[in-house]
Computed example of a mutant assay.
Amino acid sequence: MPEHEPEHEEETATDAQRRRRRAQFLRELNEAKALRDRVQPRRARAARMRQQMRMRTFRW
Rank of each mutant, 00 (worst) to 15 (best):
E3T: 11
H4A: 14
H4V: 13
E5C: 06
E5Y: 13
E5I: 11
E7S: 05
E7M: 03
H8G: 05
E11I: 05
T12W: 08
T12L: 15
A13Q: 14
A13P: 01
A13Y: 07
A13I: 12
D15K: 14
D15E: 14
A16T: 07
Q17W: 03
Q17Y: 08
R18Q: 06
R19D: 03
R20C: 02
R20V: 02
R21A: 12
R21W: 07
R22E: 12
R22L: 10
A23M: 03
A23G: 02
Q24T: 09
Q24L: 11
F25Q: 14
L26M: 06
L26Y: 08
R27E: 12
R27I: 09
R27W: 08
E28L: 15
E28D: 12
E28I: 03
E28K: 15
L29K: 13
L29Y: 14
N30H: 07
N30V: 07
E31K: 13
E31G: 02
A32S: 06
A32Q: 11
A32D: 09
A32K: 15
A32W: 15
K33E: 11
K33F: 10
R36F: 13
R36L: 14
D37V: 06
R38T: 00
R38W: 03
V39W: 04
V39L: 15
Q40Y: 13
R42D: 15
R42H: 14
R42Q: 09
A44G: 03
A44R: 00
R45V: 06
A46D: 06
A46N: 10
A47C: 01
R48C: 05
R50M: 05
R50C: 02
Q52F: 05
M53R: 10
M53I: 09
R54I: 04
R54F: 05
R54K: 13
R54Q: 06
R56W: 00
T57F: 01
F58S: 09
R59P: 01
R59C: 02
W60E: 15
